[in-house]
Amino acid sequence: MMNYPPLQIAIASGKGGTGKTTLAVNLAFALEVPVRLLDCDVEEPNAHLYFYAGLKESVPVSVQVPEIDFALCQFCGDCSRFCRFNALAVGKKTALVFKELCHNCGGCKLVCPHQAIREVPWVIGKKEIVSQDSVELIQGCLDIGRVQASPLIRIIRKEASKDKLTLIDCPPGTTCPMIAAVEGSDYALLVTEPTPFGLNDLKLAVETLRVLKIPFGIILNRSQGKDSIIHSYCREEGINILMEIPDRRQIAEACSRGELAFCQDEEIRSQLRELLPTIMMQINFSMVSPEGVRP
């Protein structure tokens, strides 16, 4: 069986609703090799909707937040002065922790001269797993009322496989959660659509990836099959459009039924399978043996 090196490929976009998840899931299944898929859109993970098996395993995920030992606290306020996120408030006889503001750096514990701070786990979400055919999906799901998307994404990101291909379904936008999801990837696929909104947010995503020095290529979804604003932008910027997916009612209908619409179309499916060799050439990575050893 053909195998791929343990590359990490992020699927991002800028604009929401361009087809990141659809592409990620269809690509994962089209390759027909063991693939790990990480759904890092933790505020609204939905890749699992394509898995008829349903989510199997669920594990709570927590971050470390400070807890004050009032037997030791002298109310000096060093912790509060240190915290850039204003997560602590210390008065003459009071000390409060606002764990929802904490960014889990552990600094308050380090600067406390009285060892009055210890770190305790605080559950922010869960990690859920389902396997179907050759694809293993691991998704992060942020608990309702929690705001720690980036910390949860970083925890899910650590699940990237050491021996097989990992695809990362990223959240939209170009803020911290998107960056947490794409960071550390070998390559990014930017999914866009030929609309002014698609172009605007694509430009932002391109700028972000250039700063992060992550090589990328573009997948144009809902392509009208003619020259578009995305084509002219890519020509000007010298960016590769790796693949165009046609704007077809049949595809939309299959998606709405939870089917793998791109895999059902022979032409799209074979283009998906050609993506990996193209990506590897772009990042100078050769095909490897089934043992996954780099030549």
């Binding site: 306020g77 509060s80 996120f85 204003n86 408030a89 210390v90 008065g91 003459k92 503001l101």
Partner: peptide, 15 residues
């Protein structure tokens, strides 16, 4: 302040 302005203003008042 990015966040927690109320907390820090309150802390300032405590002093």
């Amino acid at each position: 302040a990015v966040q927690g302005a109320g907390i820090q203003t309150a802390e300032k008042i405590l002093r």
